[in-house]
Amino acid sequence: MKSIYRYFLILAALFVTTATFGQSVHDLRLNEMMIKNVDNYADEYGRHVPWVEIFNTAYNTVNITGCYLTDDTTGLAAAGKKGGVIPSKWYKIPTDQKMYMPQRSFLIFFLDNSPLYGPFHTNFTPAESRTRYIALINANGKDLLDIVEYPVSLRDTSLTFGYVMDGQRDATAFKKGTRAAGELAFLKEFTPNSSNETEAKISKQDKLKRDDPYGIGMALISMAVVFTALIMIYIMLKIFNYVTRRATQKSKAQEQAATPAKAMASKAGEEDDDTVDGPTCAAIGTALHLHFGSMHDEESEVITINMPSKHYSPWAQKELTMKRNPRR
C-alpha cells in the first residue's frame, strides 16, 4: 500500500513540478526601458512617455495578471507575509486578455503615472521617483521577479537600457543581488516590442553548433526526457497493476465468502488465474508466429465456425437472373 502511494506521489510531484516550471512568471524579465522619451515609442494617445518592456523568456504562454510593477520595493518583505498589505504605490497589472504573454513575446508598459489611461499605464513615473530602478514583483507580493537598476544618466539621455541578450540573466548573481558584468547596458538601438539583439541574429542551428558542437549535451538531455516520459508511464502502469490486483483480490474474497465450497477449493491450492499459464502463452505465441509468418494477400480457403455472411441478395444472384431452361 505504501509503495503505491509512493508511486502516486512521485507521479503527482512530477506533474506539479513540470507544470510549475513550465509556466511561470519567474521567466519574465524587464528587458528594456526608456526614461527620457523625446520622440521615440509613443503610447496609444501619441504621447512620448517613459516605458518599460517585459519579455517572456519561456517557450510557453505566461499570464502576468496580478504581478506588480514599481519603482519602490519598500515593504516587499512585509507584503509577502501572511496578512501583509501590498503597498498602494505598486502598480498591479490588471486582468486583460493581452496579459497572456505568448512564448518569447514582449509587452510594453508606460511609466506615466496615468493608470486611468488603460491597463498598460502605471501609477508611477521614474521622472518623479527618488529611486533608480524598476522592479517586477510576483502576484504573491513576495518574490522579486526582476529588478533593473538604471544609471542616473538614463534620465538625461534618449537611450534605452536593458539586457544585451534578451532576458539572459545570471541566476546566481541575481540571487546575491548583483549582476554579471555586461549583462545590462545602454542599447545601441531602440527596440520596443522586439528583440534587443540587433546584431546578426544567431539562428537556432548556429547556436546549437556553437554551444553543443558535438551534440553530446543534446543527446543527454534528450535521453533524459525520453526516460522521464517512459518512467512516468511506468509509474502509471504500476498504479494500474496495484489497483487491478486489489480489485481482483477483493472480488475473489467476495466470491469465496459467497460460495464456501469454492473457498475450500481455493485453499486446497487452486492456481491464481491472474496470470496466463505457460501452455497458453505457447499457444498464443505459436498462433501469432504462424499468423505473421504466413501473411499473404489471398486466402485460398477459409475454414471457420462462424456463420458465413451473405453478400448477395437474390436479385443480384447471377443464377436467378439467367433464363432457365424450359421445363418439360
Binding site: M218, A219, M223, F227, L230, I233, Y234
Partner: peptide
C-alpha cells in the same frame, strides 16, 4: 511495465547517430 524502459534505452541509437 518495466519493459517500457527498454523502449527508452533503445532510442539511444537516434542520438548516437546524431
Amino acid at each position: 511495465p518495466k519493459l517500457i524502459l527498454i523502449g527508452a534505452a533503445a532510442q539511444f541509437g537516434i542520438f548516437a547517430a546524431y
